[in-house]
Simulated scan of single mutants.
Amino acid sequence: MTDERPVSTETLAYKILTGAQMAQLLENGSFAGAPVDLADGFVHLSAAGQVQGTLDKHFAGQEDLHIACVDLAAVANALKWEVSRGGALFPHLYAPLPLSAVTAHGPVWRDTSGCVILPGLD
């Protein structure tokens, strides 16, 4: 029997957090998840090309948002790429997000055209 789970070559993913959630991650050293994560049973992450769409769809109009850059190798044992919005594969973390896997983080910033600037890519 072969393993037919999709495999991605992405090495980083991103978690969008409210200010309070970011503070919790920094204070506790891990983040169990937002209400939607807890309801779904996994922490929702986005690949780099998915962050803009996730922000626009699920966080429209919200302020005090942050983005944490996650090293996928550090959470590989609990990570699955699964079909989600529009049939695209999204990274889902079936464990709390450990601060040790976060390589960079910062507030949501957009360039002059409105595109999100991801932390850690400067």
Score class of each variant (00 low, 15 high):
Asp64Val: 02
Ala23Thr: 13
Asp64Tyr: 00
Leu55Glu: 01
Leu93Asn: 07
Leu72Phe: 00
Pro107Tyr: 13
Asp71Lys: 00
Ser100Leu: 10
Thr103Val: 15
Leu93Ala: 06
Phe31Cys: 00
Gln62Leu: 10
Ser8Ile: 08
Val36Ile: 12
Gly61Pro: 00
Ala101Met: 09
Pro107Gln: 15
Gly87Leu: 08
Thr54Val: 12
Glu63Asn: 00
Ile117Cys: 11
Ser100Arg: 13
Ala13Asp: 05
Gly33Tyr: 05
Ser113Asp: 13
Ala47Asn: 03
Tyr94Trp: 07
Ser8Tyr: 07
Asp37Trp: 13
Ala68Cys: 01
Cys69Asn: 04
Ala39Pro: 01
Asp40Trp: 09
Gly114Asp: 11
Tyr94Lys: 06
Gly114Trp: 07
Phe31Asn: 01
Pro119Gly: 05
Gly19Pro: 08
Cys69Asp: 04
Cys115Ala: 15
Thr9Asp: 15
Ala104Gly: 12
Leu12Thr: 13
Pro96Met: 07
His58Ser: 05
Trp109Cys: 13
Asn77Trp: 05
Ser100His: 07
Arg5Asp: 03
Ile16Val: 15
Leu89Arg: 03
Arg110Val: 12
Ala104Lys: 14
Ile117Asp: 08
Met22Gly: 05
Phe59Glu: 02
Val83Met: 13
Leu65Cys: 01
Ile16Thr: 10
Asn77Leu: 09
Cys115Val: 14
Phe42Asn: 03
Thr103Trp: 14
Ala73Asn: 01
Leu79Trp: 02
Phe90Glu: 12
Leu72Tyr: 04
Val75Trp: 01
Ala104Arg: 13
Glu27Cys: 12
Ala73Met: 00
Phe59His: 10
Gln52Asp: 05
Pro119Met: 04
Pro6Ser: 08
Leu25Tyr: 11
Ala39Gln: 13
Ser46Tyr: 14
Gly53Arg: 04
Lys57Trp: 00
Leu25Ala: 11
Leu17Val: 09
Gly61Gln: 03
Thr2Ala: 04
His66Gln: 05
Arg5Trp: 07
Ser84Gly: 14
Val102Asn: 13
Gln21Ser: 14
Gly19Thr: 05
Gln62Ser: 07
Thr54Met: 12
Thr9Ala: 14
Gln50Glu: 03
Asp56Met: 02
Ser113Asn: 11
Ala95Lys: 05
Gly106Ala: 14
Met1Pro: 02
Thr2Asn: 10
Asn77Ser: 14
Asn28Tyr: 09
Leu89Phe: 10
Leu118Tyr: 02
Ala32Cys: 04
Leu121Ser: 11
Tyr94His: 15
Pro119Trp: 02
Ser84Cys: 11
Lys57Ser: 09
Ala32Gln: 06
His66Arg: 09
Pro98Asp: 10
Phe31Arg: 00
Ser46Arg: 03
Phe42Gln: 00
Gly53Ile: 01
Phe31His: 04
Thr11Ala: 09
Lys57Pro: 00
Leu93Lys: 06
Leu79Asp: 07
Met1Thr: 01
Asn28His: 13
Leu65Val: 01
Gly41His: 02
His66Met: 01
Pro96Glu: 04
Ala73His: 01
Gly29Ser: 08
Glu27Ile: 09
Asn28Trp: 06
Gly120Asn: 04
Gly120Pro: 02
Thr9Lys: 14
Ala95Tyr: 04
Trp109Glu: 15
Ala68Ser: 02
Leu38Ile: 12
Asp122Gln: 04
Gly33Trp: 08
Gly33Asn: 08
Met1Phe: 09
Gly49His: 13
Leu45Ala: 06
Ser100Cys: 10
Glu4Ile: 08
Gly53Thr: 06
